[in-house]
Design a protein around this nucleic acid. Sequence first.
DNA 1: GCAACTAGGATTGTGAACAATTTGTGTTAC
DNA 2: GTAACACAAATTGTTCACAATCCTAGTTGC
Lengths: 227, 227
Amino acid sequence: MPGMTTTPEQIIVDSILDSIADQKLRAGTKLGEQSLSEIFSCNRTQVRRALATLTGYQVVEHIPNRGAFVVTPSERGARDVFQARQAIELTICENVAQSENLPDFAPLYENIEAEGRAIASGNRPEAIRLSRKFHLILAALGENSVLERYLEELTMRSSLILGLYGGDTESQCASEDHRRIVAALEARDTQAAQSEMRTHLRHIEAAVDFSGARKPTGALSGLLTRR
Amino acid sequence: MPGMTTTPEQIIVDSILDSIADQKLRAGTKLGEQSLSEIFSCNRTQVRRALATLTGYQVVEHIPNRGAFVVTPSERGARDVFQARQAIELTICENVAQSENLPDFAPLYENIEAEGRAIASGNRPEAIRLSRKFHLILAALGENSVLERYLEELTMRSSLILGLYGGDTESQCASEDHRRIVAALEARDTQAAQSEMRTHLRHIEAAVDFSGARKPTGALSGLLTRR
DNA sequence: GCAACTAGGATTGTGAACAATTTGTGTTAC
DNA sequence: GTAACACAAATTGTTCACAATCCTAGTTGC
C-alpha cells in the first residue's frame, strides 16, 4: 500500500503489545515517558498518546502523577476475562460454522503447525504468541468486527495473565485443542466446535495458578523489540 | 465523597454520551474542538482527550485534519453490535440467575416503573435512556467487570442506532420485556431468562429500519446539556 | 539506630504559541 | 454561467517551555 505510513504511536503500541504477549514486559513494569521517547526516538507527546491507547486496552494502568504501568491482573479480573472470552468465542464458533460461503481454513492449519514446532522446540513465548494468533485468525473468520476487536483485547490480557501466573505445561495441549476446534468447524458442526472451544478455554484457565506468582521485573532496558 | 473531583474531560465525555443517548446529538454531527472548549469553558487539550476517549468507545469517528464526528452506524455494524450484545447479555443473565447470594432486584423494578411512565407520557428520549439504564443495572448485577464495560459501549452504540434508524413503536413493548426478564431471573430460571432476553433483543433489532433514515443535524448549538 | 522532616532531582501535567491542513469565498478566464 | 484558480479564514496538529507533583537522599533530632 503506497502512502501507508505507520505513525510512531502505532509502532510504540504494537511494540509494547508484542513485548507483553512475549512476556518480555511483565506486570508492574513502569513505562516511563522519557525512556520510551528515547527508545523510539520520538516526541513525548506521541508516547503519551500511545500510552493512552494502551490504557484503553486495559493492558496499561495509568496512575495520575505517577505514570503508566503494565497492569497486574487480579484473580477476579482473570476470571472475568476468561468468562468474557467464552461468551465471545462461542459466538465466533457459531458464526464460522454457519457461515454462508465456507471460509478458508488454511491459515488456521498453518498456524497450528507453527504452534507445534514452537512447543517442540520449547519456545514458550513463541507458543503463547502463536496461540493468541490462532484465536485472532478465527475471530476474523467470524466476520463480526465488534467481537473481533474485543477478542483482540481479551487475548492480550490473557497473555499477560498466563505470563504472570501460568504453569509450564499449558501449551502442550493447546495445539491439539486447536486442531479439534478447526476439525469441528470444517465439519460445520456448531455444537461440537463450541464444546471443543469450551474445553480448550477451560484448559487454559486451569493452567493459571495464583498461589505462585512470578515476580515482576522493574526496568525496561532491552525489553522492547523495536520493529 | 470528599476529594472526588470530576475532571473536565469526564464531564465532557459524559455530557456527549448523554446527549447521544438522548438523541440530541445525531450521527454525523461535527464535534469541533474550539466549540466544545468554549461550551465547557476549558482548554482545548482537555477537549482533545475527551474526544480520544469517545473514539475508543467507537461512538466518535476521528478523521485526520478534519475533526471528530458522531459516527454514522452502518447496517453491518448494527448487526455486529446486536449479535455481540446477545453473546454478552445471555452470559450476564446466567451470572445473575446463578449468583450465590440473591441480588437486589429493587433497582430493576424501579427502573421498569420509570420506563412505563416515560412511555405513557410519550417521552421517547427518556424511554430510550431508561431502557439503556435497565441493561446497565442488570450488567452490574452480573459481577463481571469486562462484560459490564463492553455492554456500556454496546448500549451506547445501540442508542445511536435506534436514534438514527429506529421506528416509533419499539419502546412500547420494552417495558414488558424487561419485566419478564427480571421475573425469570428472580425465579432463578436461567433458560427462561436467556430466552426472554433473546426475544427482547430481537424486538429491539426488529425496530431498526435502514430504508428510512433520519437526517443528521449539523450544528451543536444548545444540544449539549451542561451537567 | 530510627523516625520525621527538608531539600534536590526527576517525572508527569498543562497551556499556549506556532505549523500544517482544510474549507470557504471571491475572482478570473473561457 | 460555469469551472478553475488563488487567497483568506478557520480548524486541526505539533512542539516546547513552564508548572505541579512525586520520589530519593540526606540531615536533624530524639
